[in-house]
Design a protein around this nucleic acid. Structure first.
Lengths: 341, 341
DNA sequence: CTGTTAGCGCGTTCAC
DNA sequence: GTGAACGCGCTAACAG
């Protein structure tokens, strides 16, 4: 099958290429009549404009990139859903890149995007990211970028988050309210602000409740699940076992489950557990897991919306949105009413 | 910052554009020396070739599309992981499109891909897809396409699946082995072969065990979760309640959980439940859910591998791969050993 | 209102 | 071994 392009159409209609082009782009310079004709033939021959020629000429790719630490994770999967919804609305395409929580991959991926392949970037940082030089390069290229959830420290940049300090505070307070006095915190791996903020919320709640802050109760986790599991095991085996655990991410909550099972400890009878989680089903399957659920779909949507705002009107300052997390308590029925959360 | 392109490099080196181009493409016509120089300057100026110009010229996009029914679903998320791994290996980019189980969206998306934006397509069909005309158009354009999991009926097409008949059979047999005599099947929505095959496996297992086939025990589900939930509720409320349920997808298993909770029925004491599921955590959180776990990561990887095979050597016949599902039984420790499954 | 011309940046002839 | 010239398909500027 021969490619059908503007030239084909122009020849068949005895028009010039540019007239056809304008007609298809609904230019005001073209008669309604000619437009009709052109459109009809285009339809008939199933003409599809070549996106690369168009991009080359217009310096626009109609494509955005989404850079994620991982995808087998309900939070990010839902965020993509929200992003995709907005992208479709704007007629944009979505490229996915996974860092697998690896700083080096993150750098490599940002390098890939320096060539104009995409018009904008949505990004959630890898937990191993310390240094932000690679992000500066993107900004130098005037590539609009919006961070979500795991955001850059840079103030001059757009971001969408939930209030991690508040969430950490509320999670801890919830455990206190349940009668916990010795509360451990499984801290977010790496050096991102999100980890510090959640911990700071935890510390503040301890303070406000006149509970001692025992450094041994803060576990600095990493990306090695086995190591984390063992550390939690040790924590639970100590003769001064915590009566409550606040996990900063879902995976650590699952490790805690496994460790408790190993030690024949009951959740929540022996240890109460609260965790960030967007696993819709977690509550359904095991109501003892109180969750702090982030509005992942809305975060994705908001981040994408901010990005497209920047894409439309060029000079737009950094904007920030902070959405609300929801604490879903034991036996709450809230989980059933959530749609795309 | 000015764009740095071949022209820039050529001028700075007193070479012609074409020489620089050849040098960067490591052509045999160019001296090792000049290559060095060119590469050095390219590095220094951080030259990034314009992908659109390149694609326009080469008729290659270095991009594949992945079309999925949904993404907030562990199976598909893991499949993307596998796909991405292979794509990165080949230096390819991955576009994501979601049908949201909607046939019309699926058609619209396939139309989008008719213009050469991607070199190949990986696809899992929407459950509402009946008609495959839109897929024919893709094939007419010689766009390589590989289906996975929810595959086209067409024999002339590449696909990667697990053996759905066998899985359905094994699931049912497992319930029989647990002592179930009245086994219900929550059938996969829509008209795809995957639903029929799982049901046929179920029916064959009943037959082989001399169990009656009661049509009322087969629930034809759809994409409306509330309706499914109510149907399951009715099923469980009947005076002739099933003692085992085989759910064809995870969501239906979750609906079953909710329905049982509503009726104060215990799983597995009152009703045994088995379901397809790639929710790694399901077993951990609730061991009573016996799962049939598909090797999602490997399915994605295999599908992508097949696709790239087709991309390399043009004329390649349809290939088919059938991977093994794993039955993860109650209290099995298998779940902990799985990596990217 | 329509057509002509001139690139977008790159890769591939074909001369030299 | 290197360079000049052309074209991939489309759009923008300018004529008419």
């Amino acid at each position: 099958m021969e490619p059908v392009n503007l030239k084909t159409l122009a020849e068949r209609l005895n028009l010039s290429i540019s007239t056809v082009s304008k007609a298809l782009n609904d230019s005001y310079e073209i008669t309604a009549e000619t437009k009709k004709k052109v459109l009809a033939l285009a339809q008939e021959l199933n003409y599809q404009p070549n996106p690369f020629a168009s991009s080359l000429r217009r310096h626009k790719s109609k494509t955005i990139a989404v850079i994620l630490p991982e995808i087998a994770n309900n939070f990010f999967a839902l965020a993509i859903n929200g992003i995709e919804a907005v992208a479709v609305e704007h007629g944009y395409h979505v490229l996915i890149y996974l860092t697998h929580e690896d700083y080096n991959r993150e750098v490599a991926i940002t390098q890939l995007l320096l060539n104009g392949r995409v018009d904008g970037v949505l990004m959630s940082l890898a937990s191993t990211t310390e240094n932000q030089n690679h992000l500066l390069e993107l900004r130098k290229k005037d590539l609009p970028i919006v961070f979500f959830d795991r955001v850059s420290e840079d103030d001059a940049v757009s971001k969408v988050t939930t209030d991690d300090f508040e969430s950490g505070y509320n999670a801890t307070q919830h455990l206190v309210d349940q009668g916990c006095r010795r509360i451990a915190h499984l801290m977010f791996p790496g050096h991102l602000s999100i980890g510090r903020k959640r911990r700071d919320g935890y510390l503040q709640a301890l303070l406000d409740n006149n509970l001692p802050n025992d450094p041994e109760l803060i576990l600095s986790c990493n990306n090695n699940s086995t190591q984390n599991y063992n550390a939690i095991l040790d924590l639970l085996k100590s003769n001064n076992r915590p009566d409550g655990i606040f996990a900063s991410i879902e995976k650590l909550a699952l490790n805690t489950y496994a460790a408790c099972a190993e030690l024949n400890l009951s959740i929540p009878d022996d240890v109460k557990l609260i965790s960030f989680s967007n696993l819709e089903t977690a509550q359904l399957l095991h109501p003892s897991l109180t969750t702090i659920t982030q509005p992942a779909y809305d975060i994705g949507k908001e981040a994408a919306t901010l990005l497209f705002k920047a894409l439309k009107r060029k000079p737009v300052g950094p904007e920030t949105a902070v959405l609300k997390s929801v604490l879903i308590k034991r036996n709450s029925t809230a989980i059933r009413s959530t749609g795309n959360v």
